[in-house]
Simulated scan of single mutants.
Amino acid sequence: MTNPDLTTIAVLLDRSGSMQTIKSDTEGGLAAYFEEQRKVENAVRVTLAQFDTEYECVYSDVPIDEVPPPVLQPRGATALYDAIGKLVTDLGADLAARPENERPGTVLVVVLTDGHENSSREWTHAAVRSLIEQQQNVYSWDFLFLGANMDAVAIGSGLGFAPQQSITYGAAPAGVAGVFRAAGAYSRRLQAPSGAPGSARAAGFTDEERRDANPG
């Protein structure tokens, strides 16, 4: 069986040009998110990828205590579908290559974007949706969709993210800080030793967390 005391968190961060206005807020919010995950009892390992028109894996499978401060350099357009497809397939291949007892009992993929898909060349909307649903239904992965300048619940649901695990945030300092607090709290609930992952998934983000992320 997989290791119930091990968690893998893979973060996919939009670095397209429009992120420039919330660059420092995003860096600080992601750093705070990682700090929150250092408090859980599980051993947590982190993969970080960034995307614009191109995809870059910044680091892979790093222990949470060794994660460096995030650095975001906005540029380019938003190849969201290609980035999701690349991250999920690469992570899946990495985990599949390990002995089962070395695979994490909890896998969480966090996708943050401030804009709509506009430049993917390899992955389609339908292919991404099928991939996400497969990883959720067959392998019990968790996915969070954090979206600004959009109805993130509608967009995320269309891509296969559960609506309760999709959240709209305001593209301003308060909204960015709020959405990372929400993601951090959800991630901790998912890994709580006294709780059940299924309960955290079913409940998703709370109404208070949604208001905090999108104060209006």
Rank of each mutant, 00 (worst) to 15 (best):
Q20S: 05
R189D: 04
L13P: 01
R201S: 01
L87T: 12
L12V: 01
S140P: 04
F51P: 04
L6D: 15
T78M: 07
A31S: 09
Y186C: 02
I167F: 09
Q136H: 05
A148H: 04
W141Q: 01
S157F: 06
A196D: 15
N214I: 04
P197R: 12
F205E: 05
S24I: 11
R211Q: 11
S194E: 14
D207C: 06
K23M: 09
L87F: 06
L112K: 00
S166H: 02
L30F: 14
A97D: 03
P4C: 14
P68F: 00
L72V: 15
P173V: 09
I64F: 01
Y81I: 10
R188W: 01
V46Y: 06
L87E: 06
R210M: 08
P173I: 04
E56F: 13
P74G: 06
P63L: 06
V88A: 11
A154K: 10
R189M: 04
R189E: 01
A126V: 10
I9N: 02
Q165F: 02
A200C: 09
L12S: 01
D52T: 07
F180N: 15
G17S: 09
A93G: 08
P104H: 15
T53L: 07
G178I: 10
E35P: 03
A183H: 07
V71K: 15
I84G: 00
A171R: 04
D90T: 14
Y81W: 06
G115L: 07
P163M: 14
G17A: 04
E35M: 09
L146G: 05
Q164M: 06
Q164I: 05
I64A: 02
G175E: 07
L146C: 13
Q37H: 10
R75K: 12
A192H: 14
G76C: 09
F161E: 12
T113P: 00
T206L: 05
R201K: 10
P74L: 06
C57K: 13
A126H: 10
R211H: 09
L6N: 12
L87C: 02
E27H: 11
H116W: 07
G85I: 07
Q136T: 03
P69W: 05
G147C: 01
A152Q: 03
G198W: 14
L159F: 15
A203L: 08
V107M: 11
D142S: 06
L13V: 12
L72W: 06
G156M: 05
S130W: 12
E122M: 09
V153R: 03
A93H: 06
N118Q: 03
G216D: 11
V71W: 14
Y169S: 03
V67D: 01
S157G: 14
R75Y: 03
G216I: 10
Q135W: 04
T8Q: 13
G17I: 07
D94N: 07
R103W: 02
L112V: 10
A97Y: 04
F34C: 07
D61H: 01
D142Q: 09
T113M: 01
Y186D: 08
H125L: 14
N137D: 15
F205Q: 07
S194K: 14
V46K: 00
V128R: 09
Y81T: 00
A213E: 03
E122P: 00
